[in-house]
Design a protein around this nucleic acid. Structure first.
Length: 184
DNA sequence: CGGGTTTGACCTGCGC
DNA sequence: GCGCAGGTCAAACCCG
């Protein structure tokens, strides 16, 4: 081996001078003791880093499906350790792998809603989550609060957004142009 | 043995 | 230029 650490790959990337193609990105918050919630897709962890100002590490996952470049970051809120923040980057170019057997999907199904709405069946709520991945403009479910980077929230969701914002949970996830985003 | 995780090294970007 | 923080790689390791 002449090159350590795939240096060649890095050189190639630089050659292509790809300036961050701005993958669609959205995040949702989940109240759960489990860091990595089952969401129906298969993920491979490729890194973990300590986060500044937070006692909790951030984990990096990639979709294991071939040709699917979706990534996600999972980190626990330092302000409320019961809240897990999951950030998706990119969109799946495939459907969910066969529904996980047994109770695999029960983690996320059983996680209590951040804002306690029980008016929608759990399965429907999770379905909405996945919908958001395929339809980027779909930006809200009742179980998780999701905010797509490039899509403003409809007015009736602004209040919930404000709640999260007041808790300082969204500052890093939203573009500065996002309606209602506070100055840092 | 294959697939996933851990972990330290290394790269990039950014602010000073 | 330097240092820091975030992101990624890949060898070693673990486990079914």
């Amino acid at each position: 081996m002449n090159l350590t650490y795939g240096l060649e790959d890095f050189r190639n990337k630089v050659k292509k001078k790809e300036k961050k193609p701005k993958e669609p990105r959205f995040a949702f918050l989940t109240k759960s003791e489990i860091d990595h919630l089952e969401d129906g897709y298969r993920w491979r962890k490729y890194g973990q880093k300590a986060v500044k100002n937070s006692p909790y590490p951030r984990s990096y996952y990639r979709c294991t499906s071939q040709k699917c470049i979706v990534k996600k970051r999972v980190e626990r809120s330092y302000q409320d350790p019961s809240i897990v923040m999951t950030t998706y980057e990119g969109q799946h170019n495939h459907h969910c792998p066969a529904t996980l057997r047994g109770n695999a999907a029960s983690n996320i199904f059983s996680s209590p809603s951040l804002f306690g709405s029980n008016s929608i069946p759990l399965e429907q709520r999770i379905h909405q989550d996945f919908l958001a991945q395929f339809l980027p403009s779909y930006s809200q479910s009742n179980n998780h609060q999701m905010f797509h980077q490039n899509v403003p929230l409809p007015p009736h969701q602004q209040q919930q957004f404000q709640l999260l914002q007041d808790n300082g949970l969204l500052q890093d996830l939203l573009p500065s142009s996002f309606p209602g985003k506070q100055e840092q």
